[in-house]
Amino acid sequence: MTETTIPRGNTLPRIRPWLGIAAAASFVVASVMALFWAPTDTTQGDVYRIMYVHVPTAWLAYLAFVVVFLASVAWLWTKRPIFDAIAVSSAEIGVLFTGLCLIAGSIWAKPTWGVWWTWEPRLVTTAIMFVMYVGYLLLRGLSTDFSRRATRAAVFGVIAVIDVPIVHLSVLWANSLHQLPTVLRIAGAPSLDSSMLLTLMVSVGAFTLVYAYFMSARVSIELARQGRLWTT
């Protein structure tokens, strides 16, 4: 392989410490707001506070897999290795957040629904999404040829994103135990108390900064790995 388009002297390592500080600070603020500042829910009591980690992890699962899709399209279009690095990084982090979303949701479900797990549409489609992106990561291990591996993974990444809207809209399409969307609603404004909404938005922002920090670090690792791959 003679062609290399790996960017030299990129700005990621320079902004990463600041991104880390912003992520850590906002994470502390979000956690204090979620655990102590937000009011107790009149119906669910305090256990609803788990939503302040469950909803942001769900949002980041969506975001991460949409980034995989966009980076996959960009790889297929341009064949620039940076896009493959972005795709695999976002897939790995997306799997982490999807797993955490399922675990936090399960812990919330036990005292609320009385079960850790139930076979209802939102849970099943989310579990399928988790397995699909674990599969995406495993697929990458099947070939040592960089270009072939990236192309196979990109095709998978383009197809697999179909599950993201299915997960989000499954509560509308099927009779579901899971509650309907309260923030990203097709019809109208968010349907929750303003201080709860503010806490949720701060939590979503903090988790998104954590995702951005993880991405900057993980993409750097992948670019270094590609560099070693291409020089040996």
Partner: peptide, 30 residues
């Protein structure tokens, strides 16, 4: 605070997993 055990478990697992992933990134050279 009711259901404190569930709340603590959920937050601790999420925080712990994010910290573990951060450590794994550092270990891989980030």
């Amino acid at each position: 605070m009711d259901n404190l055990g569930f709340i603590v478990a959920a937050f601790a697992i999420v925080w712990g997993a994010l910290l573990a992933y951060l450590i794994s990134l550092r270990a891989r050279g980030a």
